[in-house]
Amino acid sequence: MRQKFNKVQSTCIPIAIDNCNTDLIIPARYLASTTRDPKFFGDAFMHDLRYDADGQAIHDFIMNQKDFSEAPRQGVHEIIVAGQNWGSGSSREHAAWAIAGYGVRAVISSSFADIHRNNLLNCFILPVVVSPSFQQELFQSIAEDPQTQVLIDLPSQTVTNIATGHSEHFPINGYKKYCLMNGLDDIDFLLKNIDNLPA
C-alpha cells in the first residue's frame, strides 16, 4: 500500500469506459469489509463487469480477454488507461483499495473525479492526467499491439508511449509528489502541524 513511486514501465489494461463510477469499480456489497485485505479488494475490482451473476467470466469484457487477463506483476498490466471522468460518484476509498489490491500502480485518463483522485493518491496509486488526444493515442497503440509499453516517470512528471515515442508532461503538486516518492502519508504531515488550530 505504501510502495514508493518513482518510475513504472509496463503494459497496460485499457478500460475505455467514460464516467466509470466507483460503483462499477467496486459494487456496494463489497464495502461490508472492515479490513483493507488487498486480496479481497483486488478480487472485487470491476467485479460485475468481469463476472456474471453465476460467477462466470464475461468474455466480452476487456479484463477477461487473453491479452489483458493476466494479473499485474512488474512490467505487466501495472497501468490502467481509462476513459474520461474516471472514478465518479461514491467517495468509497474501497475503489482505490480494489485497484491497488489488483496490483495496479497508476491510472491514466484525461480526467478524474476529485474525491477518487485524492483517494488514489492516498493509496500511493498515481493518477496521470493526459490530454484527450494522448489518451486516444494510447488506446490506439494498445489496440494495435497489446504489448505496448508505457513509461511513467514521476520525478520528471512525464508519461511516454513507448510505441510511438510520444511523451506528455502531467501535473502533480510538489508536496504530493514528494509524499509518493518517499512513501509518506498526509496524516504524518498533519500531526506535525496542529499547534495553531482554532479553539
Binding site: E93, I115, N118, N119, N122, I187, L190
Partner: peptide
C-alpha cells in the same frame, strides 16, 4: 472524503 482522509 475518503477513508484515509477520515483518519486524518
Amino acid at each position: 472524503i475518503g477513508t484515509s482522509e477520515v483518519a486524518q
